[in-house]
Every structure is written in structure tokens, then in C-alpha cells.
């Protein structure tokens, strides 16, 4: 009566992908509810801020000085893209993480399988990255349809937008894991970190116009770096050296956050 199990250990790289496969199955049944935020919001933002402001500002020479001659809409679009990606990724990094740990306990379920805590953490981050990427890509398509995109450089810009969203998200996920079975405290993240970041990261006006102390805030935020990259690529004004600087900063944050997230997942799941 010997029993032989049909279970086997999947290769290390496949573990995170299996988590993504699960998330995709989950997402498919509720994607309609995210349509509003991923399609309608960018449309409204681009129309009201981009088109509306463009008319309001008219051909003010001071504006043209900052935008490098392009219309405000074209100048604004890449920044709105990075902001939208960051917003979605941040939300995905808060309550859904807690739900998986303490309400639905999905993570504990998966942790009983051959997948390791690190692979589950990796899959979680990968899924958030895919969400950030899809939001950026949809945004880019809509912006193109509205005439706000003039170059194929929008494709690397979409990747930079994803990178910027992740540089912040990995830190938020790590924070979320420390909040399991406690007061979440995500309002602090949304109101005191995400909101100011969106206002000071040079989205709506160039950071150069800010006083030094406010500039310093912008430099620290991952959003400013990804906005500079996206906008620079889209407008063709990016110089290689600053591109390298921005990329390095974002990648460093991602490496740091991923490392912290993995450690915290292990600590939380393997008590």
C-alpha cells in the first residue's frame, strides 16, 4: 500500500511565476472594477489638466521656456503616467498584502506547498510590477490617442515608469508586512508620503521653480527620478549621465526594498 506523491519542487525561477499565474486568475474575475482607475482616470487627467491647462496657458513664452517648446499636454503626459503607475502600485502594496497575510491567509496556504517564503515574496513584487507596467502601458496608449505622444521613446518611458513605481512599492510592501496583526497605518503612507511626493516630484511644473528645501524633497522621491527619465525620454532631452544617475537610484531602492521584503516575509511566515 505504498503511496508515492506526485508533487515535486518547482525550479526556483518558476515559483514567483506561479504566484503571478494565481494573481492573474484572481485579477481576471475582477478586472472590470480596475478599468475605471486604469483607463478613465488617465483620460480625465489628460483632458482636464493637459488639454484644459494648455488652453489656459496659451502660448505663454515662459511656459515654452520650461517645456522646451512642446505643448503643456505633451510635457505633462509622461509625468502623469509615472504618477498613475506609482499610485496603483502603492495601493496594491498595502491592503492586498495585509489581506493575504491576515484576512484570507493566502500566503500561509501557499507556504504549505514547496514554494518558499522568498518565492512568494518575489511573486508578490513581480505581480505589482506587472500591474504598474500595465497601468503605464494603458496610459501611454491613451496619451498617444490624445496626441500627447510624439515618439517611440514612449516604450522605454513606460519601463522607467514601472521602475519608479516599484522603487516606492517595494518599500511599502516591506512596511505592510510589519503591520500584520496591527493597526495598518497606511493612511500615513498615502497622506504624508504619497501625496506630497506627487505634488513635489515635478509632475505639474518643473522642480527648478521650487525653493531649495522643496527641491531636496523631490530629489529623494523615486517619483521625481522616474518622471525625469520618462519625460526626458519622451521629449528627447535626456542626457546619458543623469539618466544613469536616476536609474542607479531607482535600482538601488528596488534592491534594498526587495531584500527587506524577502526577509520580512520569511520572518512572518516561518515563525
Amino acid at each position: 500500500m505504498a503511496v508515492a506523491s506526485i508533487g515535486r519542487v518547482v525550479p526556483a525561477w518558476q515559483g514567483p511565476l506561479l504566484y503571478v499565474e494565481y494573481s492573474w486568475t484572481w485579477y481576471k474575475r475582477s478586472w472590470r472594477s480596475t478599468i475605471v482607475s486604469s483607463v478613465v482616470n488617465p483620460l480625465l487627467l489628460l483632458l482636464s489638466l493637459g488639454v484644459g491647462m494648455s488652453i489656459f496657458l496659451g502660448s505663454n513664452p515662459k511656459i515654452a521656456e520650461f517645456t522646451g517648446g512642446v505643448s503643456y499636454l505633451v510635457w505633462l503626459a509622461p509625468a502623469l503616467m509615472t504618477t498613475a503607475a506609482l499610485q496603483t502600485a502603492t495601493f496594491e502594496s498595502t491592503y492586498p498584502i495585509l489581506a493575504n497575510f491576515q484576512w484570507v491567509r493566502i500566503y500561509q496556504g501557499i507556504n504549505a506547498t514547496p514554494l518558499s517564503s522568498r518565492q512568494i515574496a518575489g511573486g508578490t513584487l513581480l505581480w505589482i510590477a506587472l500591474r504598474a507596467f500595465s497601468v503605464s502601458a494603458v496610459f501611454a496608449v491613451i496619451a498617444t490617442l490624445l496626441g500627447a505622444v510624439h515618439s517611440w521613446a514612449v516604450i522605454p518611458a513606460v519601463l522607467c515608469s514601472t521602475l519608479g513605481a516599484m522603487a516606492f512599492s517595494v518599500l511599502v510592501v516591506a512596511f505592510a508586512v510589519t503591520r500584520v496583526d496591527k493597526q495598518p497605518g497606511f493612511e500615513v503612507v498615502f497622506r504624508l508620503i504619497m501625496m506630497p511626493m506627487m505634488l513635489f516630484a515635478g509632475t505639474y511644473y518643473p522642480v527648478e521653480t521650487l525653493p531649495v528645501w522643496a527641491k531636496a524633497i523631490a530629489w529623494v522621491t523615486p517619483l521625481w527620478h522616474s518622471t525625469e527619465l520618462s519625460r526626458g525620454l519622451s521629449l528627447g532631452t535626456l542626457d546619458p549621465l543623469s539618466a544613469l544617475g536616476h536609474l542607479t537610484y531607482l535600482v538601488l531602492l528596488i534592491v534594498l526594498g526587495t531584500w527587506a521584503t524577502m526577509r520580512l516575509f520569511v520572518k512572518e511566515l516561518e515563525k
Binding site: I6, Q14, L18, T25, W26, R29, T113, P114
Partner: peptide, 18 residues
């Protein structure tokens, strides 16, 4: 996973075992 179907819960879980 309370939001997935009964069958999906089983099918997805089996995937983690390769």
C-alpha cells in the same frame, strides 16, 4: 481563496506542486 471558485482553488493549488 474565497473569491475564486471551488474548482479554481484546487487547480491553482496543484500548480504549486509542479
Amino acid at each position: 481563496d474565497t473569491e475564486l471558485t471551488v474548482r479554481q482553488n484546487l487547480q491553482i493549488y496543484a500548480r504549486y506542486f509542479g
